[in-house]
Amino acid sequence: MTGLIILGAIVLLILVFVGMYNNLVRMRNEVKNAWAQIDVQLKRRHDLIPNLIETVKGYMTHERETFEAITRARAGAVSAQASGQVGQIAQAEGQLMTAMRGFYAVAENYPQLKADANFRSLQEELTSTENKIGFARQFYNDSVLKFNTACETIPSNIVANIGGFKKAEFFEIKDEGEREVPQVKF
């Protein structure tokens, strides 16, 4: 009789363990998918920037430093993305965003540029890509928070330790100008 009870308890314990393990795997996959989404959108932004420079070159003839700053920041962001390090990517993207903000401010002075249809459609694409990065980051960070909480709290932390689950890193872009509301409007 006691043997049966012990056996039952062991089976129950195994079932609970399996359930928690699978739950952790599911959450880890969600984090991975969310990151893949960010990756896609970062790549898209990096691809759009040369197009943008090509389009505006004809209008903005005296803004070589601005272009150089963007090109440099973009190159840094591309190589950071290749490294796959979350912290490094966040830093490089922050620099790229600062450079882009500089560009938008300068573009204000070129009314002809703002009327260019090509530029406007590129602008919508860049705007949307930036939004997508923001929303992908939002979903990623929410997923990471859920996963990390599960990795830290009792009893799932025991399963996480045995299964070798490592906490994921938040994606926080450090950009000095981000907190304030930009007043750039075309």
């Binding site: 882009m100 903000r101 938008y104 602008q123 705007t127 930036e130 939004n131 923001g134 930009p182 075309f186």
Partner: peptide
């Protein structure tokens, strides 16, 4: 904040 993600729009 409003438009914080939308750096510039038409």
């Amino acid at each position: 904040p409003q438009h914080s993600r939308i750096k510039s729009q038409f």
